[in-house]
């Protein structure tokens, strides 16, 4: 496998097992800088585990994970993780602004610069007037926006997103998909996006990778040649979109069989 130093994330023959049960076996995968790669697959295929390895939360038994050219041994601050369960990933005793502040405090941003940056970040995710609210006072979509703002506060080169919109209703989800795409286009971050929603994967990704279960390995690697910026209506009606969706649907059906 070509493991060029140019790639943002490199899985190099990575394996992982829990208690003798293989979770991921011999996974090799390159994610280029600035690329949006979506990972799909039936449950138990190790897609979340792969994301956690890319975040340095889990270390592989075999093989190496490299991020921005360096072998990964622990989490890095320029790799931000957006968890699916926003309700658990936020500090309930901190307001929206203070939750974002946590990332700035971790990075040692001077106290005087924090309010301005927090305001900018919250405005970017559409929470301009909600700085002083507690997470429990906000809807699920708004809570996930706080988490995204906190991740953006890390100035991430890589964004790892674990089914971030999975728990949201359809309208909120589409809104957040578009917001995420425009933020990523602006910052040029690399995105590793795990989802179980095939349409979401095609809509967001430059590439969609399907994993096979037991143990997790790559089953399909599709390039998505859809024009950007993408549009919720037009993109989803394109023949190429429908073709990709069909291919992935067939893949999943076979993988689950």
């Amino acid at each position: 496998m070509n493991t060029s130093n140019d790639a943002a994330i490199v899985f190099d023959r990575v394996s992982l097992a829990y208690g003798g049960r293989p979770i991921i076996s011999d996974l090799s995968l390159d994610v280029g800088r600035g690329e949006i790669v979506c990972i799909i697959g039936p449950s138990g295929c190790g897609k979340t585990t792969a994301l956690r390895m890319a975040g340095g939360l889990v270390r592989p038994l075999d093989g190496t994970v490299r991020v921005l050219g360096e072998p990964l041994t622990e989490p890095r601050r320029d790799v931000a993780i957006v968890f699916q369960d926003y309700g658990k990933a936020l500090l309930p005793w901190r307001t929206a602004a203070a939750n974002v502040s946590l990332a700035l405090e971790a990075a040692g941003t001077p106290r005087s610069e924090r309010p301005e940056r927090i305001r900018t970040l919250l405005a970017k995710v559409g929470l301009a007037s909600h700085e002083d609210k507690y997470p429990t006072e906000m809807s699920g979509g708004m809570q996930q926006r706080i988490q995204i703002a906190r991740c953006l506060a890390q100035d991430p080169a890589v964004l790892l997103m674990d089914e971030p919109f999975g728990a949201l209703d359809a309208m909120t989800r589409q809104g957040l998909q578009d917001e995420m795409l425009s933020i990523v286009a602006e910052t040029g971050a690399t995105v590793f996006f795990v989802t179980h929603d095939l349409e979401e994967a095609v809509y967001l990704g430059d590439r969609v990778i399907g994993l096979l279960p037991n143990p997790g390995r790559i089953g399909i690697d599709l390039k998505v040649d859809l024009p950007r910026p993408r549009d919720q209506l037009e993109t989803r009606e394109m023949p190429e979109f429908l073709r990709l969706r069909r291919t992935l649907f067939d893949f999943i059906e076979k993988a689950e069989a």
């Binding site: 939360l57 601050r77 968890f83 990933a89 946590l102």
Partner: peptide, 20 residues
């Protein structure tokens, strides 16, 4: 999950105890 957030942000053990 909050401990993982602390790890992802590379907070020290003392900071994790104080802030989380």
């Amino acid at each position: 999950r909050l401990y993982e957030v602390g790890r992802a942000l590379r907070l020290s053990r003392a900071t994790v105890i104080a802030k989380i």
